[in-house]
């Protein structure tokens, strides 16, 4: 039998998870619209379908814990606390963006939130997460580094070097694989000799587990439990969250390598309506409450778009700023 939600978290926290997932979906779908209008340019990788992973995982971490991610990271940043309007302004390339318009979609960063960056070289964030975990231990700080990455990153040398290093030095790193089955258009079993990603840690003596990445509660429980273990043991751990992206790899990808049947099967497991239904069935929220959450998220995203549209472009002199201290 499914765990009762109230046995996991208080009502307001459960509703918060739903609010975050709805805001994330609305934000990403708005990005798609703004890309089509030409307001967002460059690469744009959207997170729709995977919301339960970022939302559940972030809820299972402490605010002091570092978070790093790859280039599909708008939602991780927003859920960690980045203002949607400043993220949208970044995507528009405006001076008010979270990185002054210099990073764009793939390079969000806010050290005041311990959100330590979106990295766009596949697997580039692995050793950086290990280094942040070292710094935390060296300085006697009670924090871990949570490192999100995709299934495509696990065949980079960085992944293996970093797992080995994290265990060798016994550093508090929580590796969180978002297995959405595709590295651009190459399915996991066509790129990995062992497609069960969580099993690949055995060569490094790192415990791991697989979790349903379409269920925000499962992700939350797994991450919270794993994070406590990492903190107590000062050792790395890996979670494989099995999920699915509803859109192509980027806006440039029509995703023709996936069958309609497969797509429909996963759409039926959309983490938002399924969690919403549970909230209603278990008497935590009414349908009208959920509708109000959606309306509020739509307003927030519209305000973000307006803010981005009205924000100034960076000054020309900014080109030469921030290269050196």
């Amino acid at each position: 039998m499914e765990t009762k939600l109230r046995a996991v978290l208080p009502d307001q926290d459960l509703i918060r998870l739903y609010e975050q997932m709805v805001l994330s979906r609305e934000f990403e779908e708005s990005c798609a619209e703004q890309y089509t209008k030409g307001h967002i340019t460059g690469f744009l990788h959207l997170y729709s379908g995977q919301e339960a992973v970022a939302v559940g995982a972030t809820a299972g971490l402490h605010k002091d814990d570092y978070i790093l991610s790859a280039y599909r990271e708008h939602v991780q940043a927003i859920v960690r606390g980045a203002e949607p309007k400043r993220v949208m302004a970044e995507l528009f390339g405006k001076a008010t963006g979270i990185c002054k318009g210099k990073g764009g979609s793939m390079h969000l960063f806010d050290p005041t939130l311990n959100f330590m960056g979106g990295y766009a070289i596949v697997g580039g964030q692995f050793p950086i997460a290990v280094g942040l975990a070292f710094a935390a231990r060296y300085r006697g700080e009670d924090r871990l580094a949570a490192c999100f990455f995709g299934d495509g990153a696990v065949n980079q040398g960085n992944f293996h070097e970093s797992l080995n290093w994290a265990r060798l030095w016994n550093l508090p790193v929580l590796f969180i694989c978002e297995n959405n089955f595709y590295g651009i258009g190459t399915e996991v079993h066509r790129s990995s000799a062992l497609p069960d990603i969580h099993k690949r840690t055995c060569g490094y003596d790192i415990p791991s587990e697989k979790v349903d990445g379409m269920d925000v509660i499962s992700v939350y429980q797994a991450v919270r439990h794993a994070a406590e273990w990492v903190r107590e043991q000062s050792r790395p751990y890996l979670i494989e969250a099995v999920t699915y992206r509803f859109r192509g790899h980027s806006m440039a990808d029509p995703a023709k390598y996936r069958s309609t049947a497969e797509h429909e099967m996963w759409k039926a497991r959309d983490p938002l309506p399924s969690f919403g239904r549970r909230l209603v069935v278990e008497g935590i929220a009414s349908q009208s409450h959920l509708d109000a959450i959606l309306a509020k998220a739509q307003t927030t995203v519209q305000e973000a778009v307006t803010f981005a549209e009205q924000s100034p472009w960076p000054e020309d002199r900014e080109v030469w700023e921030d290269i050196y201290v």
Binding site: P127, I128, V130, G131, L132, A135, Y138, N158, S162, W165
Partner: peptide, 24 residues
């Protein structure tokens, strides 16, 4: 500290440590 023979990671871990307040 001695490290594994993992040059890319020697640099990457230093980057993370530097970001976290250490001077590698």
């Amino acid at each position: 500290k001695d490290t594994p023979i993992s040059e890319n990671t020697i640099i990457g871990v230093a980057i993370g440590a530097a970001m976290g307040g250490v001077r590698p």
